[in-house]
Amino acid sequence: MKDLTKIEEILLLAIWRLKDDAYGVKIRKYVSQITGKDFTYGNLYSALSQLSKKKYVKKTLGEPTPDRRGRRKIYYTVSPAGVNALKAAREMNEKMWEGVSDYAFD
């Protein structure tokens, strides 16, 4: 299993949190809000296509709406492999931060 990059980790978490509403626009807004920066679609889809190549996400086609001028949405859900990857990432994070007090860098 390959390690997740930070962006992939954030995206996977975002998808997991957004549950049934996880498609491009929503994911981008959510991530932008979390990171406090305008997350570009380029970075978003570049990472999403990586995630789907690694089979960490599953894609389902959504309905076309007039706002999208007939183009379908792709809804993302975290696959079991994706869940495992998230767990592994969390474990690693926790191990790294273990014993570092909250005030260590003050």
Binding site: Y23, G24, R28, Y41, Y45, S46, R68, K73
Partner: peptide, 17 residues
């Protein structure tokens, strides 16, 4: 320029937003 499988959805997202 965007050469992904998901390009159609990408443009759709752009348009929607």
């Amino acid at each position: 320029t965007a050469r992904y499988e998901e390009t159609f959805a990408l443009i759709g997202d752009f348009d929607e937003e």
